[in-house]
């Protein structure tokens, strides 16, 4: 009995689909088109959103690099702006600011000089 019910049900349902109104069929066709076109739209939107995100990310990186670089530069400048040794200390070691300015290699030895000055003070 179940098989008879099943076969009768399938036949009735198939027949009802074949007899669908033309109006309904055209509406279904439109629904299909709308659904498939929404896929294209969503791909375009997601592509635009991805590009926008990429631009924002790139801009953020540039800003960060700029901030880091400016901070680094300012640190370097401040380091160079303050003399490692005062004029008195330089005089003690027979150096003048002018000599330091004229001989840049002395700047590289300032740290050694400072250390030596501390050593001699201890002595």
């Amino acid at each position: 009995m179940p098989k008879i019910i099943e076969s009768q049900a399938k036949a009735s349902l198939d027949k009802s689909v074949e007899q669908l109104d033309e109006n309904i069929e055209s509406k279904l066709a439109q629904i299909r088109l709308n659904a498939l076109s929404s896929q294209t739209k969503s791909q375009l939107i997601s592509g635009w959103a991805f590009e926008r995100k990429s631009l924002v990310s790139a801009f953020s990186v540039v800003v960060l690099v700029f901030l880091f670089a400016s901070d680094f530069i300012s640190t370097e400048v401040s380091t160079k702006a303050e003399p490692l040794l005062t004029q008195n200390e330089l005089t003690q070691h027979g150096l003048t600011q002018n000599e330091l300015a004229e001989d840049p290699e002395l700047l590289d030895d300032l740290e050694f000089i400072y250390w030596l000055s501390q050593e001699y003070e201890d002595v």
Partner: peptide, 26 residues
């Protein structure tokens, strides 16, 4: 689409509701 519409129509007993369901599904 037609079978889906028929299933939805049997469930809702309303053509417009069935079409809305099919649209949402697709």
């Amino acid at each position: 689409d037609k079978k889906a519409y028929k299933m939805a129509n049997i469930a809702t007993l309303n053509s417009q509701d069935a079409l809305d369901i099919v649209q949402d599904t697709m």
